[in-house]
């Protein structure tokens, strides 16, 4: 049974300026006791998630809403295990699959087929499992012969088709999706939505971050609104 539980989770982003990214400046600062290079320690930290407590269980389809920079993507990445909270605990049970950003993790020089296998393996499949999903991704992405050419020749929409196809084909228990429907033509969006519906029936937890309130309403049965890294609204919708 899959589950995501966050208890008092806080995530801080350190933001480095170009001086603090420099070894030379840091060495000067150590050597001179910080007298010469005062700006060196210019590391600002931004609180991206502030004391979030959240319990997601089997059957939860969560829509994350909020302005740019409200913490939606950070929350998704924290759930995916990319970011580690500085405070609080996070506990995730179940196999996680992610669709973040356009073509994240794709290798441009490799063909579509090779990228399918790579991505699926990175998301936790074994080699044979990864090869088994090729057919499914082929059918869904409708990229046809393009799958044999390097991904560098793909348009944004085609990359989205590929990553989305792989992420949903691997039969994860938990699917985390970060606003990907912007790219891709109307016909693909329809097909992606249909696939998401199918997927939601099979999988147990689904989290979607989007600015499109129609999309959130359609797919989600819980809605969470974030602002400045805090949950300001959380309700059951459907």
């Amino acid at each position: 049974m899959s589950r995501i539980s966050l208890r008092n989770v806080t995530v801080d982003y350190p933001i480095y300026n170009s001086r603090s990214m420099s070894l030379r400046n840091n060495l000067i600062a150590i050597g001179t006791g910080g007298r010469i290079s005062k700006e060196t320690r210019g590391i600002v930290s931004v609180t991206a998630l502030d004391d979030i407590t959240l319990e997601l269980e089997h059957g939860d389809r969560v829509g994350l809403a909020g302005h740019n920079g409200s913490g939606k993507s950070t929350l998704l990445r924290t759930m995916a295990g990319v970011f580690r909270p500085v405070k609080g605990q996070i506990h995730v049970e179940g196999r996680v699959s992610t669709v973040f950003g356009l073509g994240a993790g794709l290798v441009p020089e490799l063909s579509g087929y090779e990228n399918i296998v790579r991505m699926a393996m990175m998301l936790g499949s074994t080699r044979s499992e990864a090869e088994a999903i090729i057919e499914d991704v082929e059918r869904f992405s409708e990229l046809g012969n393009f799958l044999s050419v390097p991904v560098s020749t793909y348009s944004d929409g085609m990359r989205t088709r590929l990553s989305f196809g792989v992420a949903t084909a691997a039969h994860p228990d938990i699917l985390l999706v970060d606003e990907v429907f912007g790219a891709g033509d109307a016909e693909f969006q329809k097909r992606a939505e249909r696939r998401m519906e199918e997927f939601i029936e099979k999988s147990s937890i689904f989290v979607l971050a989007s600015h499109n309130s129609q999309l959130l309403e359609r797919f989600c049965n819980r809605s969470i609104r974030l602002e400045h890294g805090k949950i300001i609204e959380s309700e059951e919708t459907a």
């Binding site: 295990g81 990319v82 996680v96 973040f100 073509g103 994240a104 993790g105 990175m122």
Partner: peptide, 9 residues
């Protein structure tokens, strides 16, 4: 970077 920032690795 695009792998490290997007997939638990």
């Amino acid at each position: 970077a695009s792998v490290i920032k997007n997939i638990k690795t």
